[in-house]
Design a protein around this nucleic acid. Structure first.
Lengths: 203, 203
DNA sequence: CCATTTACATAACGGGCGTTGTGTGAATGT
DNA sequence: ACATTCACACAACGCCCGTTATGTAAATGG
């Protein structure tokens, strides 16, 4: 009955691509079914054929964002460890290239919709928690290697992610004030402060 | 010809209050003229009487956000200096109270619209640059007091704002993972790392 | 006290939105 | 070869949006 086996998923991926391009061009607030349809030279009928309603399409778009980030070309071929791995992850996230900037713009633009919708907010919270966990893993490795002081790795991971997210936001709003080299300089400066901090004696 | 002198501005402020409440309830994406009108028990006719179009109203709302933040009750009555002042500023910004959380939610929700509209983006960039400048001032004072190492104060200010912004975003999405005491702990931890970093000898 | 102006309410407009139904050619299974 | 099912196109729906025109009571100024 189906044309070919697997065609359905392939077409869904085509739709996802169009969603992606619309998001990049007009942000989350400009994501409409008609915009996606014309972007891929089709009609809204096609969209509803693959996604029952807009919310499903939005949810799928967010999943796409995650996959897109995970599938991003790794900067360093041999997987580094500890602090170097942490740095590599953050370098992959920061808007150092136009493509990475586009990704982050889309991501930031999703926060409005996510904060207004409970389901989306839960999904986002889970995503950021997962990202923190990935960071924490490398923090712990770095601690074992003696590259980082033995603070609470959860707190360090949260702090690292805070720094990265905030830097992303500022870089998006002021690209000429935050060129790639400054972002990297700030990142390295931050990682250096992390490494040389005295244990929490005072307090 | 006017009813009373000054009534006009007072009514504009009433409208602004309604805009504020709608933003808090539905985010920037849910800001519509009709929602604002019903919020203040009026009609869209009133709104267009005080704001020619929606963009002016939105721009005014963003100005409001700024004023609202500036007018927030200061946490410490006698103005502190240096690192303490820096800490006080950040404590005022972080979503440590429901009111501050609401403010930040509105702020974050504005990023979508701002990234999609050049005029709004410019305004936001200027606002964040101004905030960074305020931070830098306290950084320099702290450096004179010997509380912070003599790094580039612009970079330190950008780093501090990065940390704060990112922490805000994470706290908004995971309030129970980032209760006030953890936010403060993370902030103090970050400020401590800033203070104890060795000068940029290695490099 | 009358003409004018302000401060709105009311209502309508065109347009874009998500959703839904109907139609149709092509591929499939038997 | 035929009935079925898929993969869309096409068109219409009701709704909500920002904007705009019209009406009108109240306040003002001369």
């Amino acid at each position: 009955m189906p044309r070919h086996k697997g065609d359905h998923d392939a077409r869904r991926r085509d739709v996802s691509g169009a969603v992606w391009r619309v998001l990049a061009a007009h942000g989350f607030g400009g994501l409409t079914l008609r915009a996606v349809a014309t972007e891929m030279g089709a009609t809204t009928g096609l969209l509803t054929h693959y996604f029952p309603n807009k919310k499903d399409l939005v949810a799928h778009a967010l999943t796409l964002l995650d996959e897109h980030r995970a599938a991003r070309p790794r900067r360093i071929a041999p997987e580094p460890e500890g602090l170097a791995a942490l740095r590599a992850i953050l370098m992959d996230i920061l808007p150092l290239t136009p493509q990475a900037a586009t990704d982050n713009r889309i991501w930031v633009s999703s926060w409005d919709a996510a904060l207004a919708d409970r389901d989306l907010a839960v999904g986002h919270a889970a995503r950021y928690a997962r990202s923190r966990e990935r960071i924490r893993h490398h923090v712990e490795t770095a601690q074992h290697l003696g590259e980082l002081p033995p603070h609470d790795p959860d707190d360090i991971a949260a702090a690292v992610q805070s720094f990265a997210l905030g830097l992303i936001v500022q870089a998006l709003f002021g690209p000429e004030e935050f060129p790639p080299e400054r972002q990297i300089r700030l990142l390295d400066g931050y990682l250096a402060t992390l490494a040389t901090t005295t244990p929490p004696a005072a307090r």
